[in-house]
Simulated assay, not measured.
Amino acid sequence: MSDIQILELDPADGDLVSGAFEVLRAAHAADAPEAPAPHEGKFRLGLLHPVPDEDQTVLIAVRDGAVLGLADAGYPNRENLHFGWATITVHPEHRRQGVGSAVLDAFIADAKGRGRTTLTLDTRLTWEDGVERSEAGRRFAEKHGFEAALTWINRRCAVDALDPALEQELLEKSQAAAGDAYEIVSWIGRTPEHLLDTMARIDSTILAEVPLGDLELEPETIDAELKNAKADRNEAMGVIPIQTVALDRATGEAVANTAVFVYDDPEYTDAFQGITIVNPEHRGHRLGTLLKILNLRLVRENHPGVRTIWTDNADVNAPMIGINVILGYEILDAGAEFQRKLDA
């Protein structure tokens, strides 16, 4: 391993960026070809336009100018300053040679240098009757002292999975359950200026509401400035949010929210379901189902090239899993977050 260099990927180094993307492409083809393929444009632009509320780095293992593996790492920079995460990927032709351990060691050293004490790695797993996945990722994490902390289920849904009559019936039932108490508002792209503050407030509840397993993360404080910064990044990367929310007519506050993210690339047929959240005080009115069906229709109308929407939910998130099953989502596989505390 002495001939391997660990470098921080420079977004301006076209050859190394291409090499890093080739690692992701080859690993996808070998490990999970049924899952959405990595998108080269999004990868390159994501390096140039980092997430505003995380400090990001990509650590690469290089030998003779070729990228063998990488750790795509991030560190929250507003809350959860104890935390760091990484996804480690090694080119299939260079596995079992210590490349993964080398980039993991570099990630751990980088995290310690930033004062982080809790780290996570993620990997795919087999789930129920889904596609069988290798156990290599789990074994790698456990070998290096990481323990499973959160499991989620990856599901996919064709945009036309539901029979149109059934979809209309589900929509009308959810509209009846919601009644007249809510104004339903949709948009494509940036959050409208007059809704920024209320959307920031509902976004700030996400980590308090979604199941986190054994991960110890405090809720984030989202504000209008951060939402605009994230919107700037989406626009720079060609990522288009399609969003539908329910506003409480009594207060004007957003109390339920869903979003699907598509790429500004007609050749890319996958889209990604973001967090769907309903304020606890407003549950029981089928708002989750209502918003997701309306948003699905917006996806179909505005991006007819999209064929599949992908989502993941914590394995214990029964309410959202129930909605997704009704809408036609099918299990692909699972993923898990493995956690290690450096001061333990």
Rank of each mutant, 00 (worst) to 15 (best):
residue 2 S to N: 14
residue 4 I to K: 03
residue 6 I to Y: 03
residue 9 L to F: 06
residue 13 D to N: 14
residue 14 G to F: 05
residue 17 V to K: 00
residue 21 F to D: 04
residue 21 F to Y: 14
residue 22 E to C: 05
residue 26 A to K: 03
residue 26 A to V: 07
residue 26 A to G: 07
residue 28 H to E: 09
residue 30 A to V: 13
residue 33 P to N: 06
residue 33 P to F: 12
residue 34 E to D: 15
residue 39 H to N: 10
residue 39 H to T: 03
residue 40 E to L: 08
residue 42 K to C: 07
residue 44 R to L: 02
residue 46 G to F: 11
residue 51 V to W: 08
residue 53 D to Q: 10
residue 58 V to Q: 01
residue 58 V to A: 02
residue 59 L to K: 04
residue 60 I to T: 08
residue 60 I to P: 00
residue 62 V to D: 00
residue 63 R to Q: 12
residue 65 G to S: 12
residue 66 A to C: 07
residue 67 V to C: 09
residue 68 L to F: 04
residue 70 L to V: 10
residue 70 L to F: 05
residue 71 A to D: 00
residue 76 P to E: 08
residue 77 N to E: 06
residue 84 G to N: 04
residue 85 W to T: 06
residue 88 I to N: 00
residue 88 I to F: 02
residue 90 V to R: 01
residue 91 H to P: 04
residue 92 P to T: 09
residue 95 R to F: 04
residue 96 R to T: 14
residue 97 Q to M: 11
residue 98 G to N: 04
residue 99 V to A: 01
residue 109 A to C: 06
residue 110 D to S: 15
residue 112 K to F: 11
residue 123 T to K: 04
residue 134 S to K: 09
residue 134 S to V: 13
residue 137 G to I: 02
residue 138 R to D: 07
residue 141 A to V: 09
residue 146 F to D: 01
residue 146 F to R: 05
residue 146 F to A: 09
residue 146 F to M: 10
residue 149 A to K: 06
residue 151 T to I: 14
residue 154 N to I: 12
residue 155 R to Q: 12
residue 155 R to F: 06
residue 156 R to D: 06
residue 157 C to G: 02
residue 158 A to F: 10
residue 158 A to Y: 11
residue 164 P to V: 11
residue 167 E to R: 14
residue 168 Q to C: 10
residue 170 L to P: 03
residue 173 K to P: 03
residue 178 A to M: 13
residue 181 A to H: 13
residue 187 W to D: 03
residue 187 W to E: 05
residue 190 R to A: 11
residue 192 P to D: 10
residue 193 E to C: 08
residue 194 H to Y: 13
residue 195 L to S: 09
residue 198 T to L: 03
residue 207 L to H: 08
residue 209 E to P: 07
residue 211 P to Q: 12
residue 218 E to G: 11
residue 226 L to T: 03
residue 227 K to N: 11
residue 229 A to I: 07
residue 231 A to C: 12
residue 234 N to F: 11
residue 235 E to C: 05
residue 237 M to T: 10
residue 243 Q to I: 06
residue 249 R to E: 09
residue 254 A to G: 09
residue 260 V to A: 05
residue 260 V to M: 02
residue 262 V to D: 00
residue 263 Y to N: 00
residue 267 E to P: 04
residue 268 Y to R: 03
residue 268 Y to E: 01
residue 270 D to N: 10
residue 271 A to M: 02
residue 271 A to C: 05
residue 276 T to R: 00
residue 280 P to F: 12
residue 285 H to T: 15
residue 286 R to S: 15
residue 290 L to A: 07
residue 290 L to D: 02
residue 292 K to N: 07
residue 299 V to Y: 01
residue 299 V to N: 00
residue 300 R to C: 12
residue 300 R to D: 02
residue 300 R to L: 11
residue 301 E to K: 12
residue 302 N to K: 10
residue 303 H to K: 05
residue 303 H to E: 00
residue 303 H to Q: 07
residue 306 V to D: 01
residue 313 N to K: 09
residue 313 N to Y: 12
residue 323 I to S: 01
residue 325 V to S: 11
residue 326 I to L: 14
residue 327 L to G: 04
residue 327 L to Q: 04
residue 333 D to S: 13
residue 336 A to N: 12
residue 336 A to W: 00
residue 339 Q to C: 11
residue 341 K to T: 15
residue 341 K to V: 14
residue 343 D to A: 11
